[in-house]
Design a protein around this nucleic acid. Structure first.
Lengths: 229, 229
DNA sequence: CGACCATTTGATATGGATCAAGCGATGTGG
DNA sequence: CCACATCGCTTGATCCATATCAAATGGTCG
């Protein structure tokens, strides 16, 4: 069904102790700021991080795990807006309220900062403002890319999705797909069956090779990319 | 075909004389600023205003006519990003370059301002910055809405499109559709034939009534809206 | 009037949805 | 430790919405 099997509240508000190995000192100020002042939170799989319609006054950065943003339409269908993997920043909605809700896909750890805190910081460091604009720009570009995705055929959509996920993985390593086939289907505007069949076909044709249902090797990304136009 | 019949350069850089009847003195500062410092330009139908990949250093406001933003995909298909009608501001791309090109649909008049000019103004009037963010937010919301559109069926897409256009028209007046059926199809991710058939069906069922191919009366928008979910 | 182009309408094909069943992991209780 | 229920994924058979191909209609401009 569409309902997640469990939608519990955050499992724990993690202690702030411990090493913050992420974010090298030469990282951009915004990322640095989030590392320094962000409050770590952990969420179990399928746990809601924020809901559609709630005021958007926090910014989040994925440390571990994976997050999806989604929206349930009037007729019950679900549309997934984006997947966010470690290092990605999400929660930036320029309106006052979140248009999509966000849920942890697997057990996840995120850093949370108040939007107002960042706005305050921005008045000291104007590069933070610039970075907020850049972030908004990336978000815009991402969504525009999603539109272009949705007018392609099934194989092109699936391949585009795999290549997006590949961007977060060093060449030569298997690509991890933490989300379910249903999540992928709702992201691509297809059904689970079509996603599954398409992936099977790609595997059979040698374009990709599934190690498990959630781990796939791409031999030549450039070759795969030719199937996504 | 996909190629516009004529893609000429701006037909004339209109004289700056004459009344600027638009923008009441109580309009928001950004709109006011554009009215005051914007350079009027006129474009003939199918004339390119800016091209995909060009640096995005101007902001535009439609005074008269209609504008579409579009992108031609690798395989030759064309995706339309948005339609802009009088009063709408376009050209805001947060990246450095335009991801889509913009063309006048019919003979159009737009006001043009340099982005840098607005940035300069913003340092005097912080509400301008706020408005730029609001504008970016509206753009983001518009694109997100477009994604939700693209996962609906043909009738829902067409109805949603008509309702969007209706937003620019006072209730009770016919809705003008300056763009071609091909433009509509490329916006909705459908074919011309499907758009045409769907509109014919809506007319036959009494949901809407075409006066001409480019002018349509909607009896009850609320009733029509029920067909768009 | 006649040429041209946009739009509509008709006939047919097809990609992906839907319905249904099988399969393989994972977890649970006896 | 094993039977068995459960859940997510895959596979198969069929259907249907929309694409595609083709032609008729109608509006516009010389």
């Amino acid at each position: 069904m569409l309902m997640p099997t469990s939608l519990q509240k955050p499992s724990s508000n993690e202690t702030r102790s411990g090493r913050r190995s992420e974010a090298p000192p030469d990282a951009p100020p915004l990322a640095r700021a989030i590392e320094v002042i962000g409050v770590p939170m952990t969420y179990a799989g399928n746990c809601e991080i924020y809901g559609e319609g709630e005021p958007a006054d926090h910014l989040y950065k994925v440390v571990r795990g994976a997050v999806r943003t989604s929206k349930v339409l009037a007729d019950g269908r679900r549309q997934i807006g984006s997947f966010y993997l470690p290092g990605d920043i999400f929660g930036l909605e320029i309106g006052n309220d979140h248009a999509f809700s966000a849920e942890a896909i697997t057990d996840s750890k995120v850093l949370v900062v108040r939007r107002s805190t960042l706005v305050g910081l921005a008045s000291f460091d104007s590069t933070i403002t610039q970075e907020m604009w850049k972030l908004a720009g990336r978000e815009l570009a991402r969504i525009q890319g999603h539109i272009l995705l949705l007018v392609k055929n099934a194989q092109e959509r699936v391949v585009s999705f795999l290549l997006e996920m590949a961007d977060h993985t060093p060449e030569g390593r298997p690509i991890e797909l933490p989300m379910s086939r249903q999540d992928i289907a709702d992201y691509l505007g297809l059904t689970v069956e079509t996603v599954s069949r398409t992936m099977t076909a790609l595997d059979r044709d040698g374009a990709i090779h599934f190690l498990t249902a959630h781990s796939v090797m791409v031999r030549q990304r450039s070759a795969l990319a030719r199937l996504s136009a």
